[in-house]
Design a protein around this nucleic acid. Sequence first.
DNA 1: TTCTTCACG
DNA 2: ACGTACGTGAAGAAT
Length: 902
Amino acid sequence: MTSQPRSFYIIDTFSLIFQVFHALPEMTSPQGQPTNAVYGVTRDLITILRDRKPDWLIAAMDVRGENKRNEIYTEYKTNRSAMPEELVPQIAMIEELLAGFGVPALGIPGWEADDVIATLVEMVADQDVEVTVITSDKDIRQLLSPKVKLYNFRKNQYLDEADLMKDWGVTPEQVVDFQALVGDSVDNVPGVPLVGPKKASALIEKFGTLEEILAHADEAPGAKLRENLKTFADQARVSKTLVTLKRDLPLEVDWDAARAGQLQLPVLQEFFQQCGFRRFIDEIKTLAPDATEPAPPPAVERSWKLVDDTDKFSEFLAQLEQQKQFCVDLETTGLDAVRADIVGWAFSWDGAEGFYLPVQAPDGQATLDADVVRDALRPILENPEVEVCNQNIKYDMLVLRRAGIELRGVGVDSMVGSYLLDAGARSHGLDELARRYLQHEMIPISELIGKGKSQIKISEVDVDKVGEYAAEDAQIAWQLAQRITAELKQEDLWDLYWDLERPLISILTDMEFRGIRIDIELLQSLSVEFTDRLQTIEAEIYEEAGHEFNIASTKQLAVVLFEELGLPIIKKTKTGASTDQEVLEKLALQHSLPAKLMEFRQLSKLKSTYVDALPEMVNPDTGRIHASFNQVVAATGRLSSSDPNLQNIPIRTEAGRRIRQAFIPGEPGWKLLCADYSQVELRMLAHFSQDPALLAAFERGDDIHTAVAAEVFHVAPEAVDSDMRRIAKAVNFGVIYGQSPYGLAVNLGISQAEASDFIEGYFGRYEGVDKFLRKLLERCSQNGYATTIRGRRREIRGIRSGLGRQRNLPERTAINTVIQGSAADLIKQAMIQTHQRIQQEQHSGVMLLQIHDELVFEVPEIDLGSLSYLVREEMESALNLDVPLKVDLSVGNTWLDVERLD
DNA sequence: TTCTTCACG
DNA sequence: ACGTACGTGAAGAAT
């Protein structure tokens, strides 16, 4: 057994500080000090210590003093603008922070952090130490070696020698030559004019070094380039000295002090208290030396076996049958699960050993018989006692469904688990998770099938390559499942996963597999009708504009409206004058063109997004549309739908609504059943706030907007007119979003003062709501996350507590997340219970769609009575709230023609 | 790839 | 002086 090399992390401190300073929004401590850079550095330090567990950690600093490089070149770094005002006081705080974390801050007056880093790297060069430099600085690239790599925190990107070769086409030794030629405008390194990265790379490849290039200047391509290489030869040499890092500074390092993890807890906690970083106070406890954190699993040695004949297959099966848990990953012919066919099966049950079973391969390579494999695996996969895990297992379940296999024992899906751990993460993809949790870089698929136009089919790739790739997927997914299970348990999110999100995976699989039937002919005739009308309006628009132009181009449209017709610019976008709906409505008061534009926009939107797009999405085998329901996209916990999005089928306008007529039951004698929650979000608000007036209104079954109008306007409910109700409705929605007077005013077309009065009136009558929202924000700012009714979390930074009713984005996000996310929890629970009872009682009706507060089913007419009753019962009892839940049911032959059932 | 617009809850 | 309701996905133009 060989010992692991020790790891040594060096932070390029100012590089990191500037990165976080610019990446994070403004933050202030309770005393009003700017703190965003301090916050960012703290968070990153914690991440390094927790996830990377370095053996040594040192912060390299720039220390004031006459910069030595200016002695060589007076212009060096004279381009640099002064440090931003809000950053200056944070530097001392960060130094304090580093001391608290036990991270030595090393620097030598007059030299730069880069030189300190170079010296440190040199000092450990002959030891068995792996160095990682945390930097975004390109100069450091000259230090790369098999034992030294760079890491960019913000991009979560490692850079090693190979990456350098890809990027610049040079070796680490050639970096200084490269930079000497290219120069650096930021640091004011002059370089050679006309030479950019491409030319520099080519020259270095041809001649090897800067001196050789200068000596052979005559052989360079282009007269001007040849001249420049001669004229600026000395300037290039000066540049080279400027970018060359000094590797022998007189640096004294106390390696014991540099051991990572020697935190001074009380000091740090006091420091965080002052900064207002309450969430870190608890978080750093787990990093202290005595923390009882489980040791990270050692990197697993992986190997894999090709199972490509019947003997090997029998042996493999015998082993698989012994497993209570395993990971399976399918390689398929495409990305659309409802159309793809199986190319091969990959398995792993310990993360170390992997198996690949090819059933399709290039000519001449052995495969197993697809049907034999399928039939042998069916009983294992359909055994509910066997826990099957994978990354995005819904995909595999769908492919299996088409092969006639119903996977029953769903275990841990690393993608869904990762979503619960950090709903706001940019990606929950396997590549990203492998990096985040296992520090492992996956084989890119492009290595097998190529990129862009020259892609080939995976079934035509050598089985040895596919097998390695597929086995890696299964092994890493298995390892991730273990890690994520532990994290979910530690974070108290396990029950949410196991009881809510996990059963949902199977339900979504069912819904996607079933799909929904579309009346293509109806859409085609609608398309003809819309095209007709569009042509008419188009001609009228050209007539009024005086010439033809691309109406869909906002830029061309802006020229017509604001330059040619001289209409006033109402608002601006980042890139020019806005021409959106709101603007057109205002312009319509003074010209007849905007109204025509609005109709054109509406119809062309409907035509391109729905009328013409939906028939294209129909699966030829099933005659139905199989949209995807995504479980890990929406940060609040909602589902989302795509390919196509069936959660935004028009309903608000007459023309749009007609599209719903094309959504029909799949079989004669069947109906569509829609079940939607009435006012779920406001009921959630009533439940959370326990506000007596709000609870009572729901208890009585009042129309909630009318009831609120009566309260706010101090009149009897009977005296509420439509205008009062409209205002109350807007205020009700505003509360859920964390309204500001301005937002409400714009929405209602009233003055800010009036809007302010309504809001005050609302909170005056519903004090429970006011109190609840304040408490919600207080808790959220303490925890660093918002929590829903089922314990789902969303990290939210930047909540400023104790600010009364003035709310910025983080505060509004927190409020909305609790309400919207809890409503999402509710309907997910309802889906599970409804689905379960439908199975138990063996109804043939099935769930087709979920649209946030609504479920759509396809039901035989004969079963309508019992099924609708069942659906209402399960939806209304999904969670036990202190407010009654109400579900409205409607039934019809199309999604348009549904009528209230009651 | 990014921006703008607009469809839904 | 600024921007100003939350959460999504898709199409088409511009870059």
